[in-house]
Design a protein around this nucleic acid. Structure first.
Length: 470
RNA sequence: GCCCGGGUGACAGAGCGGCCAAUGUGACGGACUGCAGAUCCGUUUCCUGGGGGUUCAACUCCCUCCCCGGGCACCA
């Protein structure tokens, strides 16, 4: 069954057909590290991490590139009002970003491309656009003339004449049309800058992405991801830059956009006072719970974030974790012989595998995929009441682990294996002491002997019991 | 104003031209149980924004209206 991907460009679910066989080039707009990582970032990057994981599961070799916008207006603004060097800000927030991504099991990115590492490529692209008469320079700035590109608006459906110039941002008077956007911005006092044919300055926001992807992937690639609010103007500008420059259309074959993260039914904004930084959320909830929360809705739907919603996600996910533990413990030390419910469980596992893939093939329907896992979990619990053998448990666990790897869930329980050794040994020592007090030496010796078998020696010293690991 | 997206049970949230409208949470009852927890079974009156149309059949397709969210040129 073919994978179907919803393509914003065509507003349809399309069969996923790559450019180069099993190779997939994928790019996702990364962050501008000028402030804390917020929940919207988390949702977006969990989404595309899942996309890359599933593609790899399907056998594709995914080259996933994400940019880091390490020079940009908001970053400069932050630098100017904090008095800190922009590079320090970048270092601080990118470190936080990486830590947060790790907590969310976001691991699929192969390469982070930093905007400032691509200044020569950016300048080359701008020069190319100027040479073609598509871009024009005005005292040190370079603008893209939107009227020169007839595909403008094809991604977002925007109609140039209908737009309201300056609805949110003041229009630069030097632009030929309010629709034009900056490719290069001249340096203002105190700002970071690089040499260019137009004088010292820095790149506009949109150009780094095309400089990076054209350099790494060439004039066309498979998937571009991002959140919906980037669709216009950012992604529209990318198309305009790349297609005008290279002539290859479409620049990106599949445009994927994730729904917004809302808070109380509104977009999250510092100014609305509903801003949630991920590190703060991680103090209240495990990263995997957060990840589960995001994947528990379709990636294109907006999600309303709330503490109640998170509490529910936590309880819900816990149900799966409980079943996971039941299963993994039985897989280690369950009964050997065939058991009553083995066949039923095997059938359920096979059915779940099929349904899971059908759900994921349908434009990465993680909500449906998770429902499949819940159904399997119920079956697992029912089967265990009837009796399941060790090997059937192992087969089932194997499948659950595959689901977990695709969705980036169950990673912690899986790694966990055993409870913390020290604490466990302390408890055994305590129980043995209780037994010795009762002069129940059969039990106390049993504990000591069994521990010795697994390499733990107990010594009754004057000051108390000592344990040693061999 | 224009361009997108959406309105489904107490709540969250899928799906599909007909087959029980998933799944989870919550609530209630029962089973199991030394306690606790988990689990299982059942219930939570047939819930698809309004109106029209197409069709043997619409929550699903079309039109229209209402409501909500996003974008409109420097937001993941």
């Amino acid at each position: 069954m073919p994978l179907k991907v919803y393509n914003t460009l065509t507003r349809k679910k399309e069969d996923f057909v790559t450019m180069h066989g099993r190779r997939v080039n994928m790019f996702v707009c990364g962050i501008t590290p000028y402030d804390h990582v917020h929940m919207g970032h988390a949702k977006t990057y969990v989404t595309f991490d899942m996309v890359a994981r599933y593609l790899r599961h399907k056998g594709y070799r995914v080259f996933y590139v994400q940019n880091v916008t390490d020079v940009e207006d908001r970053l400069i603004a932050r630098m100017l009002d904090s008095g800190r060097d922009w590079r320090d800000l970048v270092a601080e927030f990118i470190t936080e970003y990486m830590a947060v991504m790790e907590a969310l099991n976001v691991t699929a990115v192969n390469h982070f491309a930093w905007a400032t590492d691509y200044i020569p490529e950016i300048i080359e692209q701008i020069k190319g656009l100027v040479k073609k008469g598509i871009a024009y320079a005005v005292d040190g700035d370079v603008f893209y003339d939107v009227t020169k590109f007839d595909g403008w608006g094809k991604l977002s459906g925007m109609i140039v004449e209908e737009l309201r110039p300056g609805a949110r941002v003041e229009v630069d008077k030097r632009k030929r049309s309010p629709a034009d956007f900056a490719l290069w911005k001249s340096q203002k006092p105190g700002e970071p800058a690089w040499d260019s044919p137009w004088g010292k300055g820095r790149p506009g926001w949109h150009i780094e992405d095309t400089a990076i992807t054209v350099s790494i992937f060439g004039p066309q690639y498979d998937i571009h991801g991002g959140a919906t609010e980037l669709m216009f103007p950012h992604h529209e500008a990318e198309i305009a830059q790349a297609e005008a420059l290279t002539g290859v259309k479409p620049f990106v074959r599949y445009w994927m956009h994730g729904g917004m993260l809302m808070i109380g039914g509104e977009e999250m904004h510092k100014s609305l006072g509903n801003f949630w930084a991920v590190p703060d959320a991680l103090k209240l909830f495990d990263g995997e719970v957060l990840r589960f929360f995001f994947l528990n809705a379709h990636y294109r739907s907006p999600i309303d974030f709330s503490l109640e919603g998170m509490e529910e996600a936590k309880r819900s996910y816990q149900r799966l974790l409980d079943t996971y533990q039941l299963l993994s413990q039985s897989a280690k030390r369950g009964s050997d012989g065939p058991m009553t419910a083995d066949a039923v469980l095997d059938t359920a596992v096979t059915a779940a595998k099929t349904k899971f893939e059908e759900a994921m093939d349908d434009d990465f329907n993680t909500r449906e995929a998770i429902a499949v896992i819940f159904a399997l979990a119920s079956q697992i619990n029912r089967s265990f009441e009837a009796g399941v053998s060790k090997t059937a448990a192992q087969r089932c666990l194997g499948q659950i682990d595959i689901f977990g790897d695709v969705l980036g869930l169950f990673q912690k329980v899986r790694r966990q294996g055993l409870v913390p050794t020290d604490a466990l040994l302390d408890i055994l020592v305590q129980i043995r002491e209780e037994a010795r007090k009762r002069k129940d030496f059969a039990v106390s010796d049993l504990i000591r002997d069994k521990l010795k078998e697994i390499g733990v020696t107990l010594e009754d010293a004057k000051e108390g019991v000592r344990w040693k690991l061999k």
